[in-house]
C-alpha cells in the first residue's frame, strides 16, 4: 500500500511540544526577530529621509523617483543572486575593493560566518525594501497642504519643528500602514534568505 494511502495517527500537539524543546527552532525565532526588527527600523529611517528629500524641488525629480524604485522592481531572486555575487567569499567586489584600499588583509567571509551572514542578509533586505517605504511615505507627504508649512514659517518654526509638529502628525496614519506591511513582508521573507544562505551557515538550519 503506498504511504499516501495509509491511515495516519492523530498526534495532537506533539509537533508543537517537540518544537518547544528544539534549540534550532528558538535560534530561528531569534534570527527572524533580529532580521525583522533591525531591517524594519533602518528601512523606515532611510525611507523617510529619502521621501523628504524626493519631496523637495530637485532637478530631474521624476527620473530620481523612478531610479529609487529600481531595487523594488527587480525580482527578489535576481537581486538576491546579485548580492550572492557581492558576498562571494573568493570573488566579492567588496572584499576586493577593501583589499585594494589596504583596509583588510584577507577576504571577508560574508555568508560563512554567523554574524556576518545575519548582517549581510539584513543589508540586502534593507536595499530591497527602502523604495517601498520611501515611495509610500512620499505619497503621504504630498497630501500635506503647503499652507500649513507657510503658517509654521510665519510662527517662526525651524525645519525640525515643522517636521515634528506638522509633517509627522499628518504622516502617522501612512506610517502605521507602511510599517505594518514592512513588518509583514520582512517577517515572512523566504526568497532572499534561501538564495543567499540556504538557511546557513554552520548547519543548514541556522
Amino acid at each position: 500500500m503506498p504511504a499516501s494511502a495509509r491511515g495516519g495517527a492523530f498526534v495532537g500537539l506533539e509537533n508543537y511540544e517537540w518544537l518547544w524543546d528544539d534549540s534550532v527552532f528558538w535560534l530561528s525565532v531569534f534570527n527572524t526577530l533580529l532580521y525583522t526588527g533591525v531591517a524594519t527600523v533602518i528601512k523606515f529611517a532611510v525611507g523617510l529621509y529619502l521621501a523628504i528629500l524626493l519631496n523637495e524641488n530637485l532637478p530631474f525629480k521624476a527620473m530620481l523617483r523612478a531610479v529609487v524604485l529600481i531595487p523594488f522592481i527587480v525580482p527578489t531572486v535576481l537581486s538576491a543572486i546579485a548580492f550572492w555575487w557581492l558576498y562571494d567569499s573568493q570573488f566579492s567586489i567588496i572584499s576586493w575593493s577593501l583589499r585594494k584600499a589596504g583596509l583588510i588583509a584577507t577576504n571577508i567571509d560574508f555568508l560563512g560566518d554567523v554574524w556576518n551572514a545575519r548582517w549581510s542578509v539584513i543589508f540586502a533586505n534593507i536595499w530591497r525594501g527602502v523604495p517601498f517605504v520611501a515611495i509610500t511615505l512620499l505619497a503621504g507627504l504630498q497630501t500635506v497642504s503647503p499652507s500649513l508649512y507657510e503658517a509654521a514659517t510665519i510662527d517662526g518654526a525651524n525645519r525640525w519643528q515643522m517636521f515634528r509638529h506638522v509633517t509627522y502628525p499628518l504622516l502617522t496614519p501612512i506610517i502605521a500602514v507602511v510599517m505594518t506591511f514592512s513588518v509583514l513582508f520582512t517577517f515572512t521573507d523566504f526568497q532572499l534568505i534561501w538564495v543567499l544562505t540556504r538557511g546557513g551557515p554552520v548547519t543548514p538550519r541556522n
Binding site: F25, S28, V29, T188, F190, W194, G199, P204, R205
Partner: peptide, 8 residues
C-alpha cells in the same frame, strides 16, 4: 522561521 519550515 520560513526557511526552517521549508527545510523541515
Amino acid at each position: 522561521m520560513a526557511t526552517l519550515s521549508y527545510q523541515r
